[in-house]
Each structure stands twice: as structure tokens, then as C-alpha cells.
Amino acid sequence: MIQAIQLIIIRDPALMQIVAVSLRVTGTALLFSTLVGIPLGSWLGLTRFLGRRLVIALLYTGMGFPPVVVGLFVYLMLSRSGPLGSLELSLIPRLFTVNAMVVAQVIISFPLVAGFTMAAVMGVDPNLRQQVLSLGATNLQATLAILMEARLGVIVSIIAGFGSIISEVGAVMMVGGNIESATRVLTTAIVLETSKGNFDLAMALGIILLALSFLANVMMLRLQGRAFEP
């Protein structure tokens, strides 16, 4: 505990680097998960089509997907002999880079964002859509009105997506490689320091991870704002 505070106060450069990589990976992954997950969840919640149940079943499976399996999958895809890695396109990230970690984390978190958004949207009174359309809303405006009504659940979906990746270790370890001052994040650093027997440092990193997670959640709760009033 004391060591954690010391490390923070002296702004230990190695620590700051690890925190920065953690936030960058998780923040970028969360941004993409939200951009994919909220439209996908709204679409699944508001439309009926053939095969919808299958898509939802796949999504629910994705919500409980073990991160190490996602890590293995992304590893195999991106490795030099893998189907995507062998293409050597500039858009496809290389293994053991920050971008590869982002890809893995997007796959882990977008089903959570989409699944919770879908549930939240389905909880909105189905008559609302007809009534805002009657008031002259376009389809997009009607969907936005429904998302606004479901905002409590939509923000929970983002929080769930965030929680699933800030604390995730298996996938980032496999596709990132825990390379010092490149792909080392808080969770992989904790694993490393624990295995080296540096329990004080590992604890310090753990406390910082918890504090970051807490701060991020407080910020997102502020977004919910008045939705929390009865």
C-alpha cells in the first residue's frame, strides 16, 4: 500500500508507461466496442428477422467467451503464418503490438455492450416508437429516442464492456506478449511481478488498477446523471 502511494507520488516512469498502455488499449477497445455494440444491440432489440434468435444465441455465447480462447483465436489469425497475418496488409495489426491487443479486447467486450443494449432497448415501451414516429420522427430519430429512454441500461452496457477488458489478462498476455515499455499493461505486469515474488509491487499495481477502474466507473455513472433519480 505504502509502496503503491510512493510509486504514484514519484510518478515512476515505468509505472506511468504501464498505466498509459492499459488506458490506451482499453479505451480504444471500448470505443470500438461501443461503436459496434450499441447499433448492433439496438438493431437486435428493435427489429424482427429470420435468424434473429440464432444471432442472439451467438451474442450470448460471446458474452461469456473465455478471454484466453479469444486470445488464442486472435493469435492464430494474426501470426505470420495465420490467415490474416500472412496477408501482411497495413490495416491488419501485427502480433505483439498494442493494436493486436485492441483487436482481442474488442472481440471480448462488444458482445457485452450489444447484449446489454439489446436488453435495455427491449425494455422500452414498444408503443413509444409508434408515438414518436407519429410526431414526425425519422427512423433514426425514433431509434435515438428509444436509446435515450433506455440510457440507464445502455450505460450499464458500456460499464460491463469496460469491466470485462480493463481487468482482462489472458488475451492481452497472449497477443501482446507483455513486452516491457511496449505492450505491458497493469494486469500482465501483476502476473509478472507475482511470479517474480515482488508481491509489494504486484499489490501496488493491483491497487492502481482498482483505483482506475473505480474512477472510470464514477465518470460513466455521471453520464447516467438524472436517469438515476427515481
Binding site: N127, Q130, Q131, L135, A227
Partner: peptide, 12 residues
């Protein structure tokens, strides 16, 4: 054109 429905759903 617009409608006032029997059971209005108001925005929160």
C-alpha cells in the same frame, strides 16, 4: 399529421 393515442407514452 399526428395522433394522440389512448395511452400516451411520454419520454422520460
Amino acid at each position: 399529421v399526428t395522433t394522440v393515442f389512448q395511452r400516451p407514452v411520454l419520454l422520460n
